[in-house]
């Protein structure tokens, strides 16, 4: 077994430091060490996107990155999206449009939506569908998710802001 490595990752603005096995997955660092369990695992093969987080402002699938790869980087997880107990406009739009049922895919979906809107503040329906096509949802048939993202975009250019 190779030596353990010290990694320090800033998550939602707070620093977390630990000695980890080099093979520890980022998602296990987030869930197990930082105890931020809003990031989920649904497939282990980077298809489903339940583990989506942002690393330095770009969405990544935390089940296919090692924690050591995030050393010194800034991560945003779902726990960092709402501010002071208030839902972020994209989260509010998900609620208003009934864009979640079981809620398992929701954290990853919200982060992908946020990333999409930060790049394309006024996406077309097709762009929304492609923008979240790295995230699977088994409950909604995607219709309300697409509607929620389009509606959030219509509420102004600030939706895609990074909430840090």
């Amino acid at each position: 077994m190779p030596d353990r490595k010290r990694v320090e990752i800033k998550i939602n603005g707070e620093s977390y430091s630990a000695e980890v096995e080099p093979r520890l997955l980022l998602v296990d660092f987030l869930r197990g060490i930082a105890r931020l369990t809003g990031t989920h695992v649904g497939c282990d093969s980077s298809n489903c996107g339940a583990c989506t987080v942002m690393m330095d402002g770009v969405t990544v699938k935390s089940c296919t990155l090692f924690a050591v790869q995030a050393n010194g980087r800034e991560i945003l997880t779902i726990e960092g999206v709402a501010k002071d107990g208030d839902l972020h406009p994209i989260q509010q739009s998900f609620r208003d449009h009934h864009a979640l049922q079981c809620g398992y895919c929701t954290p990853g979906m919200v982060l992908s939506a946020l990333f999409l809107l930060s790049k394309k503040p006024n996406p077309t329906e097709r762009e929304v569908r492609l923008g979240v096509s790295g995230n699977l949802c088994r409950c909604t048939g995607y219709q309300n998710i697409v509607d929620a993202i389009l509606a959030a975009a219509k509420r102004g250019g600030q939706v895609g802001r990074r909430p840090t």
């Binding site: 869930r31 931020l36 369990t37 809003g38 990031t39 989920h40 695992v41 997880t77 779902i78 726990e79 999206v81 709402a82 839902l87 989260q91 998900f94 609620r95 009934h98 979640l100 079981c102 809620g103 398992y104 929701t106 954290p107 919200v110």
Partner: peptide, 16 residues
């Protein structure tokens, strides 16, 4: 929905 808020902020409680 009553369920939404905890699920949207990543504070649902799933088995894992």
């Amino acid at each position: 929905r009553k369920e939404d808020k905890r699920l949207l902020i990543g504070k649902g409680i799933f088995v894992d």
